[in-house]
């Protein structure tokens, strides 16, 4: 239907995580408001598994374009295929996760269709038949609400974890619509060479728990203490810009304005003062714990729980206590 809400399902060579389906939840809410349906769409070499799972997470229809040329994600190929699909079916709204893949394909598809888009939304609602998208601007000091009046479809990227995961219903199924969009290697300017998996498996954006360190951590050694807590909790290690710039930990761990924006369920900030630039990257976390020696550190104003103390003393005790209570 013309006013359907579409959700892009991202994958890597056919590999998906449940998080790939998270936007089907908010997609369904929006579709109800529009009086339409939520549909999934995907592009890849083989989409059988994705189609099956998309129905289980709430999609009423799945649109797909398959072909060997789509084995690896390439913004160029995927956005050509996506804009063909979106132009043909003209849904009302298309949601992408604000990951590197989601952002690349959303931006290029919007440009091919000749529209602007709204990125990294943290709030979505329909008012008077119009979609209103809220996002953070200027380091999270402000939120701006944006409408995309002339665009059809309205393309939106959504901050991962901003909305609840939809329930999975193993018996759900639906109609798969397969379109073809032939593209030859000769028409493409980019070629996948290889993927080098990170040795430190930091996926901050997906992590439910992040233990993060700042200037107060004092050095590389200190991050080993934080890692122990992160490992105990099954979380990832984050860092402030000060810690990264001091060379204590690689940039891929950086949270904040010039790093990653994260929204874990628990964010434990150790030795982080809480500068605006850092808060910009983590202030929407569900629960923030601050551990800092300085009782006046601004981080405490943003924390759900605070401990005034030295992380070197507090964190090992936390590890010990968690291990005892969680039987680890």
């Amino acid at each position: 239907m013309a006013n359907d809400v579409w959700v892009y399902i991202e994958h890597k060579e056919g590999e998906v995580s449940p998080m790939s389906y998270e936007l089907l939840g908010i997609g369904k809410t929006l579709a109800n408001d529009f009086g339409s349906s939520v549909c999934a769409f995907a592009i890849g070499e083989n989409l059988d598994n994705i189609s099956k799972e998309a129905f289980q997470y709430g999609a009423s229809k799945v649109y797909g374009i398959e072909g060997g040329v789509y084995k690896h994600f390439r913004a160029e190929a995927y956005s050509k295929a996506a804009s063909f699909l979106l132009d043909k079916y003209k849904p009302e709204v298309v949601l992408f996760r604000a990951t590197t893949q989601g952002t690349d394909i959303a931006a290029a598809s919007a440009a091919r269709l000749g529209f602007g888009l709204c990125t990294d939304s943290i709030g979505l609602k329909v008012e008077g038949g119009q979609l209103k998208m809220t996002r953070a601007a200027f380091g999270g000091n402000y939120t701006v609400t944006v409408v995309n009046e002339k665009a059809k479809p309205q393309i939106v990227t959504v901050r991962p974890k901003a909305f609840a995961m939809p329930e999975k219903n193993a018996s759900a199924s639906g109609e798969v619509v397969k379109e073809s969009f032939a593209l030859s290697e000769d028409e493409l300017a980019t070629k996948f060479v290889e993927f080098i998996k990170s040795q430190v498996t930091v996926n901050l954006v997906e992590a439910d728990i992040i233990v993060s360190g700042g200037r107060g951590v004092g050095g590389e050694e200190g991050f080993k203490i934080l890692k122990e807590l992160a490992d105990t909790l099954g979380g990832a290690v984050g860092a402030s810009r000060a810690a990264v710039d001091s060379g204590w930990i690689p940039y891929e761990h950086q949270v904040g304005q010039t790093g990653k924006t994260v929204k874990p369920k628990i964010y434990i900030a150790c030795g982080i003062s809480g500068a605006i630039q850092h808060l910009a990257g983590m202030r929407t976390s569900d629960c923030i714990v601050a551990i800092n020696k300085d009782p006046d550190a601004p981080i405490f104003k943003n924390a759900s729980f605070g401990i005034v103390g030295d992380y070197k003393q507090v964190v090992p005790l936390l590890v010990e206590k968690f291990k005892a209570k969680l039987n680890k």
Partner: peptide, 8 residues
Amino acid sequence: EGGTEVIE
């Protein structure tokens, strides 16, 4: 996410 991709 998760690593480095090499593209020509």
